[in-house]
Write a protein that binds this DNA or RNA. Structure first.
Lengths: 181, 181
DNA sequence: TCCAGCATATATCGATGCGATATAGATTTG
DNA sequence: CAAATCTATATCGCATCGATATATGCTGGA
């Protein structure tokens, strides 16, 4: 799934600027599903515009760069539908957190604890934000389904960390001591 | 977490070639935690070798390219530890599957069903592989913790799909019909 | 009150990394 | 017996990331 298709997807939900598209991958309902950087989004929008997939309206703003708001054309919408009919590439996950925990025995126990606690706090924050979203019932079925999926996974992850934190720390403390002996 | 650090991590578990490092991100216990392509791994190993982070032993093989087996040096091991002490970058997820489901209303219901069924089958396969792993109890605490985390998440994801599949399809069927009227 | 830091907003650039491809014999599968 | 997959290294073009530049408004703490 390239950045152009991602942009088409966001624009299908409503007109947006490059900046707003970026934000929607950070905070909105698309957060943690996919992401893209400015360095990918701005060139993608320029190219989509050249190809007639999106229209661009420039709004002059006092003492700021013009805001360029993009909207999906019919051609863009049908390109999005085509892309959605291709086979999905396998998920890609890159988790420094899990990579670090994997090497728990190389870390001081206090750092391990801090890492896990920060992660639990992060899940709490996200779950709070996700459950307090009020316009959710009005959103299409697909969005609600994905939202529910996210909630389920984050809750399971958080619960696992809380339930197994103590055992991991105890084991690592034990290993530390027997190594020191 | 750059590819060089990922390679150091894999080599900390035992000597390996570039090919084996790649595989360990696809099948081994590090699967779905992080990944890297050949185009990133081979240059990374060359550079790690230049920097004295790894040693390289070449084994001549009949009628095949030499196999280059890398092993961690003391310097490499301490570089890995340093990297593990830095703050973890936030997780990056790129899921075409969830992105597609998000736009469920743009897809034919049969395709939606096929997408979800394929995903459930994928989870079943992975869970089967993860639970049938026998040398697990001998692995260090960190590896077992991460393994348990993966099991928990995959089970939760699979259960969610099974439980909510029918409702999503029904809703989309309903929306299709009212749009056709 | 002032200033630091963050938000808005677009854009570019160097470094990094992906995905496809080349090569080539061995091994498995239909 | 052929086709496909596996082992194994390596490179190349293109996409993408993350940092930075630019410019200004807003907000909160010393």
């Amino acid at each position: 799934m390239d950045t152009r298709t991602l942009c088409l997807g966001v624009l299908n939900r409503g007109d947006a600027s490059g900046y707003e598209i970026k934000k929607s991958f950070e905070e909105g309902p698309l957060a943690h599903i996919h992401e893209a950087s400015f360095g990918a989004i701005y060139p993608a929008l320029t190219r989509l515009s050249d190809e007639g997939m999106v229209d661009c309206h420039e709004y002059a703003q006092d003492k700021r760069p013009d805001k360029k708001v993009y909207s999906l054309t019919e051609k863009g919408r049908s390109a999005l539908e085509d892309a959605l009919h291709a086979a999905p590439a396998p998920d890609k996950v890159r988790s420094d957190f899990l990579f670090m925990l994997f090497f728990a025995q190389l870390l001081p126990v206090e750092r391990l604890a801090a890492l896990i606690d920060a992660r639990i706090a992060w899940y709490d924050e996200i779950l709070e934000r996700m459950t307090s979203c009020e316009e959710l019932p009005k959103r299409p079925a697909g969005e609600r389904f994905v939202h529910g999926f996210g909630l389920t996974i984050y809750r399971a992850a958080r619960d696992y960390l809380i339930k197994n934190r103590a055992a991991l720390l105890a084991e690592c403390r034990g290993a530390d001591q027997s190594a020191a002996e």
